[in-house]
């Protein structure tokens, strides 16, 4: 298994942001994690990357428990957050070099991979400018390139397509698929249902901190009462609670 979440719970005060969820993600899989705003997606991802500790339950990445062997687990994953972080006073090339060194890549391999991913994601033309001048989409591409530098077994991406132009979206989708074909795992949280529909092997939908559906697109469609598009399934499964609707009206 690439990722195992076993009865994981996380509370923010009285709010159960993640409520007893269990997931198994296997190698060679693109796994889409869907849910409305505030459903618990980012909290789940942060626990998977070791940034937050679960209040209950266990998380394993590539067989290494995140609570007891975080360094081994983190060495096998890469994380791209929803707000891409770059050092404002570093260029893309310097940033990729830094990430390569942090993962102890051989210097020659580091340069080779940096050039490869910069070329693939169309970063080369601004590779030597400071990041403070980048647009959101440019930052997103650099952060994605950085995440691929050490060829992680598990790539965890929070909203990967935000700010990307259609050509880059296509490139990123291709990268994700190729990684899955090479036996790597891509765990992707997204609101872009088309992306999930087109590249995900399996999809999980989280609502109010609980997994309300998990399976292949065909399995989810089979569960739905009438409609057959992922959007309809998502809307059906993530309806607001009646009390909230009444309160709003």
């Amino acid at each position: 298994m690439s990722i195992i979440l076993n009865h994981v719970t996380k509370c923010y005060g009285r709010l159960r942001a993640v409520d007893d969820i269990s997931l198994h993600v296997v190698p060679g899989e693109v796994f889409a994690f869907l849910g409305p705003n505030g459903a618990g997606k980012t909290t789940t991802i942060k626990m998977m990357t070791g940034l937050l500790a679960p209040d209950a339950g266990q998380i394993e990445v590539c067989g290494f428990p995140m609570t007891t062997d975080a360094r081994a687990a983190k060495a096998r994953l890469a994380y791209v957050p929803d707000q891409p972080f770059l050092y404002q006073k570093l260029s893309a090339r310097e940033f990729l070099s830094f990430v390569g060194q942090m993962y102890e890549l051989d210097p020659a391999l580091c340069v080779e991979r940096a050039n490869q991913f910069m070329s693939m994601l169309d970063v080369t033309r601004f590779a030597d400018q400071l990041a403070e001048g980048y647009s959101h989409g440019m930052k997103q591409r650099v952060v994605l390139a950085a995440a691929l530098m050490h060829d992680p077994q598990v790539l965890i991406v929070d909203e990967p397509m935000v700010g990307l132009d259609p050509r880059t979206v296509r490139i990123v989708k291709d990268i994700f698929r190729k990684r899955a074909e090479a036996g790597r795992t891509v765990f992707m949280s997204t609101h872009t249902l088309d992306v999930a529909e087109s590249i995900a092997d399996r999809i999980a939908i989280i609502n109010h901190g609980r997994i309300v559906a998990c399976g292949t697109l065909a399995e989810l469609k089979a569960r739905a009462a009438q409609e057959h598009r992922l959007e309809d399934i998502f809307l059906e499964l993530t309806q607001p609670e009646p009390s909230l609707v009444e309160g709003a009206s």
Partner: peptide
């Protein structure tokens, strides 16, 4: 944001 980035890496 920097600590989130650094702490997701495999080092002490």
């Amino acid at each position: 944001d920097e600590p989130s980035f650094l702490l997701a890496m495999p080092h002490a």
